[in-house]
Simulated scan of single mutants.
Amino acid sequence: GIVGLAPGMHGANRTGRPFTGDYAGDLLFATFAKFGLSRGKYQSRVDDGLELEGVIIINSVKCLPPQNKPTPQEINTCRRFLSAQLDALPQLRVFIALGRIAHDSFLRHLGLRAASHPFGHNALHDLGDGRVLIDSYHCSRYNINTGRLTEAMFEAVFERALAARNRITPAG
């Protein structure tokens, strides 16, 4: 599962599908296609026919935050929605957190301390219950333009996630 930040102004907040219509979606959906996690062609529209395969996107915050920076109160208020989605998907074993906010909120959902699992790009955190969390810098335009995140760095996270998924046997 992909744990994102919040709906983007020109993306999900406008289109209704996470990462659709904004710059971050271009890299995310291209990466999904490269790793066989989608079917169809991403055309930056909710009606483009694209279908995800073996992956789901869940956001930490449900509403578009001002300046794309949610407050701690917004993050905490929205955690119940994140928790409800995660609890409804107990078969998910591998998670990618897009950014520190997603990382921290996911860990808090599990009752784990962020200090015990420090955020780091491509860091893998064994959560002790058969699940793993892998961190990535967010695939935002800012991170790409500044070189903080490159396509190769982003793809390395997905390589690690797929390798982890192949090592973990489903619960049940």
Rank of each mutant, 00 (worst) to 15 (best):
N145S: 10
F35N: 02
G54H: 01
H125I: 01
G40A: 02
L82M: 14
N143R: 07
I75Q: 11
Q43E: 05
D126V: 11
N145C: 08
Y42F: 14
L37A: 02
R93M: 01
A114L: 05
L28R: 12
R93Q: 11
L124I: 12
R100C: 04
H103G: 02
F119A: 00
N59I: 00
N59Y: 03
Y137S: 00
P90S: 02
H125Q: 03
S83D: 05
G54C: 00
Q67A: 12
G99D: 06
L50T: 13
I96C: 08
P90T: 06
L92S: 07
S44N: 05
D135I: 00
L112V: 13
H109C: 10
S44A: 10
D87T: 11
L86Q: 06
A123I: 12
D87N: 15
G40N: 02
N143S: 03
Y23D: 09
L50Y: 08
D104Q: 11
A115F: 03
I75T: 11
A30W: 03
G36P: 08
P70H: 07
D126F: 15
P72K: 11
L37K: 04
G128M: 08
R141W: 01
V61A: 07
H117C: 11
N145L: 06
G120P: 13
A115N: 05
C78M: 04
L124Q: 12
S60C: 04
G49A: 03
C63H: 10
E51T: 09
Y23V: 06
V46Y: 06
F29M: 04
K62F: 04
I57A: 10
Y142T: 05
N145W: 08
I58L: 15
C63T: 14
I101T: 14
R93L: 02
G111M: 02
G130T: 15
I56L: 07
I56C: 05
A97M: 04
L133A: 13
R93F: 00
V55N: 05
D129N: 11
G111K: 04
I96K: 10
R141A: 03
S136D: 11
T77A: 15
K69Y: 00
P90M: 07
Y23G: 00
E53R: 07
Q91N: 03
G111L: 08
F81G: 05
F32Q: 01
V94C: 09
P70L: 10
V61R: 08
I75D: 07
A123F: 14
P66W: 02
H109V: 14
A102Q: 08
L27W: 04
A24V: 04
F32G: 02
K41R: 13
R100L: 09
G49T: 02
R100I: 10
L37I: 11
H117E: 12
C78D: 15
H117F: 15
H138N: 05
S140Q: 10
A24Q: 09
V61M: 07
R45L: 13
R141V: 00
A88V: 01
D47R: 14
A30I: 01
I57Y: 08
A102F: 11
D26P: 07
D129R: 05
I144Y: 14
L89H: 15
V132H: 12
L110T: 01
T71M: 03
L86K: 03
L82P: 12
